[in-house]
Amino acid sequence: MQKKVRRKRQILRNKTVILRSSRELFHKKGFYGTTMEEIAEYSGFDRRTIYNHFKNKEDIFSALISGILTEIAAVFDEIESEKIPTLEKLRKIVLALLDIFIENAQMLNIFMSEYEINETKKKRYISAYTLKNIHDYKEIESRLIRMIRQAQDEGLVVNVHPYVLAGVLNELLMRSVIVLHNQKGGLRKKDLIRDIFEILSKNVVTVPVQTETAP
């Protein structure tokens, strides 16, 4: 019994090291520029150990994306359960998503590219790992759409298809994060938040919305 417990703990530790190392390499070299051999070397394991835990690089990437999506789902769980106005929920969702997007910009950018390819049905191979992530993302997206629809029913948001508004919000956040990273210190997070809410207040929200800045 103790051997099984120790074995499970060792597997968990190995996976944690591999995922952390892969994440760092993806940030440094990009997903497509990183090889399984480099992941093995960077992790301090041989290739056999890597393949014992993950089938390929796409499997590793999917596990990382799955962790991010789980974090996003947890944010929705928490905010949806709060007894606060719908618009305040949307505001808190925007701020929380922005933090997650900033932390995981490169990987989410790759994933969203694959998502868009899948949605437009272009003839390109989409791995089973990515398809699983896409399914999970769609579930999260549907929660955002329901929240937007509720805000529309209350007359708080412009009467545009909620799926379109969800896409606009996602694109706004992703593009804002890209600008933030490219500025390399020239743009502060609190300025980015101000600009995002300025755009939303003038084009999406029909009532005054409170903004929140970060240091």
Rank of each mutant, 00 (worst) to 15 (best):
K4Q: 10
R6Y: 12
R6P: 01
R7S: 13
K8A: 15
K8L: 08
Q10S: 14
K15A: 01
K15L: 10
L19R: 10
S21Y: 12
E24A: 12
G33R: 07
T34M: 05
T35G: 08
T35Y: 03
M36V: 15
E37S: 15
E37A: 13
E37K: 14
A40F: 03
H53N: 15
K55N: 15
K55F: 05
I60N: 01
S62N: 10
S66T: 15
S66K: 03
L69A: 03
T70P: 10
E71M: 06
A73N: 13
E80M: 06
E82P: 05
E82L: 11
P85Y: 09
P85H: 08
L87K: 05
K89R: 08
L90I: 15
L97A: 03
I102A: 03
N104A: 00
A105W: 09
M107S: 02
S113L: 14
S113R: 12
S113Y: 09
E114V: 08
E116W: 14
E116Y: 13
N118L: 06
T120V: 14
K121G: 02
K123W: 09
K123T: 11
I126D: 02
I126C: 10
T130N: 06
K132Q: 14
I140V: 09
L144G: 01
L144R: 04
R149F: 00
Q150F: 04
V157H: 03
V158W: 08
N159C: 07
V160A: 05
P162H: 15
V168R: 00
R175H: 05
H181T: 01
G185T: 06
R188G: 13
K189T: 04
I193P: 07
I193T: 15
I193Y: 07
F197M: 06
V204K: 00
Q210R: 07
